[in-house]
Amino acid sequence: MDFLRPASWEEALAAKAAHPAAVPIAGGTDVMVEINFDLRRPDHLLDLGRVAELREWEVGERTVRLGASVPYTQIMAELRHDLPGLALASHTVASPQIRNRGSVGGNLGTASPAGDAHPALLAAGCEVEVESRARGSRRVPIDAFFTGVKRNALAPDELIRAVHIDRADGPQQFSKVGTRNAMVIAVCAFSLALHPESRTVRTGIGSAAPTPIRARAAEEFLNAALEEGGFWDTGEAVPPSIGARFAGLASGACNPIDDVRGSAAYRRHAIGVLARRTLTWCWESYRESERRAPCA
């Protein structure tokens, strides 16, 4: 095994071009488990730890450019306002030790259907900036990023540089089912983002299909129901019938499996519950913000 230690982004791309099978290692919280348990013996480990720019972020006018290696702890502490859904999701990852190292870039690299960043990214809306030495940089919309169970849209010679996430323009929530509050892989997870500027909602579902997915039919239904009822303007409470229908459609989007963490039927049911709850929470905070600052 070789341990490659590029000191810059350019060097990292060159190393990946020279050794496309090299395994990048950022926080190491997925990679090291596999190595410790002999599940992976790559010829090359490509340490991204010295590429300082990967640990930086920048809040722009409409988006946050989040470097691939920014650890969850930092997202919770510094980006709660701009990326509330992702900050909530980050807080549910594992433990302080893991959150101090684990990153969104690593979560996307692993592309597990249970990765907690994914539902929040799907709901907020984002693009993944990936780059290779041969073909330069490209942006992959998050909706096209997950291509199968633990598979993503990266080519072998590409690395993830950053994630461009839309700044929140309304309330966002993330909710996860597990046996305790820490150190738990999601049985299933759901994220909801209200986008008052475009008067749309977006969702993300984790651990209830081969890949993280959006509940498109549920989104379309809720978009139409909120528009028709004039709810964005009046800020009135959304009637339970709408919440129930939204929940049913979210359940319907799932394509889960039975496994040790839960049955498919339970996951489908739980996603409906989480969808209804997150809608209630988000809509309550939307109403509060409307009451505090009514439109001129």
């Binding site: 341990f3 230690r5 190491g28 990679v31 190595i35 480990l45 340490d47 893991i98 101090n100 190292r101």
Partner: peptide, 15 residues
């Protein structure tokens, strides 16, 4: 100065 699990840090990353 950051709390980590040393079992998940590759030795080379501590260089």
């Amino acid at each position: 100065d950051v709390l980590v699990c040393s079992c998940l840090v590759a030795a080379g990353q501590a260089e």
